[in-house]
Design a protein around this nucleic acid. Structure first.
Lengths: 152, 152
DNA sequence: CGTAATCGTTGGGACCACCAACGATTACGC
DNA sequence: GCGTAATCGTTGGTGGTCCCAACGATTACG
């Protein structure tokens, strides 16, 4: 049977914002597959805790660029699996202090490796230099817009 | 009051797949704002119709990389606003032929301009050469993965 | 001619981003 | 100091994008 191709119109394919969202869809699919029964939110929260140390949920939300309510869900999930611990902050009783447990730390090392593998899946057609250049360009765009959000 | 910054951990910020999804989130927000009461699906379908001419919903789905069921919804919306017309295909009674109306064509020109403006909002920190380079790199990644999906 | 494939449609699910409102608590301005 | 504003965690949503399964109808294939 003749395979139907119906190529994407050039008009759509060359819109940079569309390239971004399409590539991000592939990225999410690949990463989600590697993370198995974890969501990207879970990984982000654990990685932030590992780098910043125990901190409040609000701080986690600002670091991960996530809404506070989504932090609640993510921490609920991770705490149920014993990967983080939620404890009251004695110096400010509005806050919880979220900490990574040893189990969480071990799981994070595994997830780090899965995320690393996902990068290779995703950027396979690019050389190391090209990957670095892409990361640099995306980083400039991100810095610009996240700074805009912060000041506005 | 001291502004709280809580910077994103370097560990998260330098993951290329995360840069992609974060940048795509900005892209979507900016484009959605410009498209006002249209969704990206609506624009994609209209642009595909304009470039490929009247065609079936299944063909639209393949061109726009959208699920058939989402095409149904998008065409429903556009037909309700008189921007496209859905008519039975006489040569293959399984298919509908979707066509852009003159009103749809006019609206598309307006949306084209909005999308163009959104690109400037999004990639403001990049020079024209850098934008082209970014588009080229993303295009390579997209071509690789969409081709993978097609053959697999 | 029987089976496989395609088409449009319906009705979902998952995930991510985002918002509003609430009680409790803390910080700030006067 | 005290009233007001801001922050924190939580609950309970909404919307958009991407997917999937199944169905009857129709067409293509072996």
């Amino acid at each position: 049977m003749m395979p139907i191709d119906d190529p994407t119109p050039e008009r759509l394919r060359r819109i940079p914002s569309r390239q971004l969202t399409q590539a991000a869809a592939h990225a999410h699919r690949i990463v989600a597959h590697r993370l198995a029964d974890f969501r990207t939110h879970h990984y982000a929260v654990m990685a932030a805790l590992d780098e910043a140390g125990p901190c409040s949920q609000a701080a986690l939300g600002r670091m991960c660029r996530m809404d506070r309510s989504d932090i609640v869900t993510a921490v609920d999930d991770l705490a149920a699996r014993g990967l983080v611990v939620r404890s009251p902050d004695e110096t400010d009783r509005r806050r919880n202090t979220v900490s990574l447990t040893p189990e969480g730390s071990g799981m994070l090392r595994h997830l780090d490796e899965q995320v690393r593998l996902a990068q290779d899946d995703l950027f396979e057609p690019l050389s190391p230099e090209e990957r670095a250049h892409l990361a640099s360009l995306l980083g400039r765009v991100l810095e610009y817009h996240t700074h805009l959000d912060g000041t506005h």
